[in-house]
Every structure is written in C-alpha cells, then in structure tokens.
C-alpha cells in the first residue's frame, strides 16, 4: 500500500437545502474504452463478456457488471467502475484484448451529485434549468451526455428522476461547484 494518500478534487464537499442536496460523490474508477478500427465484431462479444451487456447507445448510460457504461463518442465509451482500482484501465484492456484501447480517466474528473431528497423533484430541475443548457426535465432516466455549463465541460448523467450526476474536469471543478452553489442559492434560499 502506497504511503501517498489520495485526495478528492472537491474535498468531499456537500451542501443541503430543503429538498436538494449537492455533494461531491466518489465514483470509483473511470475508464475510456475505444474500439479498434475494424474490430467491431470482436469488440461486441468482448464487451458483453466483460460487462455482461451490449454497449450503450448514444446519449445513454446503462448499468453493467461492476458499474455503469456510457456512450461518449463514436466508437468510444466511458466505463464507471465501483471501488478503487488504480490499474482498472490495464485490467480492462487485458480482458478486452486487441479489439479495444483503454485509458485511465478517474482522476481527470470531479463528480458532483445533485439530488432531491424526496420524490418531489421540483427543486432539482428549477436549479438545473438555470445551469445546464439541456432539457433534463424531459430526458429519460439513463440519459447521459457531455456538454458545457458556465464555460466548463460537464458530463451529465440522469440516473433517475431525482438524481443527477455531474462530472466536470478536475482542475476547474472548484469554479464549477461555485457556480452551481451560487445558482442553487439564487433559486432555493
């Protein structure tokens, strides 16, 4: 075990309002997985074998063995794995073989959960409609895409009607969080 201790980008931030919580959420490991050129036929079964399911469609995130998989760009997926495993990219690359390329991404992103504490989700969308340019109210559960908010890149994942995860680059995560909190305060307090 290394004596270097890991730090989270936002130092486990959390803030609560009546009916809304914004908190940094440890996601585990993120791995980019790209399909090698002309290897789709090998990739499909390998993906199924590794993750237990077919790969997601554009704008989609699905639960897979060990975590979630979302479509990130043509021939590329982002795998969200539960638990800490600094060599997760290598492990996945080994399982997938020559049909795919894996890249470790976990440290590149800060993860923020925005969720309603009850089934009432008005506050969630009232805040996010002043923050994210996409139509999240009507997006289906399992919607996931990359966009930008307040000049900062963000991956938006709608796990359920009451829970949305925002992944944003680590280096600017503090600016992103400040803007989100400011917006939430404007709407809710």
């Amino acid at each position: 075990m290394s004596k270097l201790s890991p730090t989270l980008p936002l130092e486990s931030f959390s803030k609560h309002w009546p009916d809304l919580t914004v908190e940094e959420h440890y996601t585990g490991e993120l791995i980019s997985l790209a399909i090698a050129r002309d290897e789709e036929s090998a990739f499909k079964p390998a993906f199924k074998k590794t993750f237990g399911k077919a790969a997601p469609e554009p704008s989609q995130i699905i639960a897979v063995k060990g975590g979630f998989a979302m479509w990130s760009s043509p021939d590329q997926y982002l795998i969200l794995l539960e638990g800490e495993n600094i060599n997760a990219d290598k492990d996945i690359a080994k399982k997938m073989g020559a049909c795919a390329y894996a890249t470790l991404q976990s440290d590149g992103w800060a993860s923020i959960n925005v969720k309603s504490d009850t089934s009432k989700n008005a506050a969630l969308y009232d805040v996010l409609e002043r923050f994210i340019p996409l139509n999240l109210r009507q997006a289906p559960e399992g919607f996931a895409t990359r966009t930008s908010a307040h000049h900062i890149a963000v991956i938006v994942i709608k796990y359920s009607e009451t829970e949305i995860q925002l992944l944003t680059p680590r280096s600017s995560a503090r600016s992103f969080l400040d803007a989100l909190i400011h917006t939430a305060d404007n709407v809710l307090s």
Partner: peptide, 15 residues
C-alpha cells in the same frame, strides 16, 4: 479516417 488511432485528453488525469 481509416487509421486505427484514438485520442483521449488526459491533461487533468495526471499530475
């Protein structure tokens, strides 16, 4: 477009 090559930005990933 026929080259087998993929690009990922890892600027924030590695200190």
């Amino acid at each position: 477009p026929d080259m087998d090559v993929h690009l990922i930005s890892t600027t924030d990933q590695w200190a």
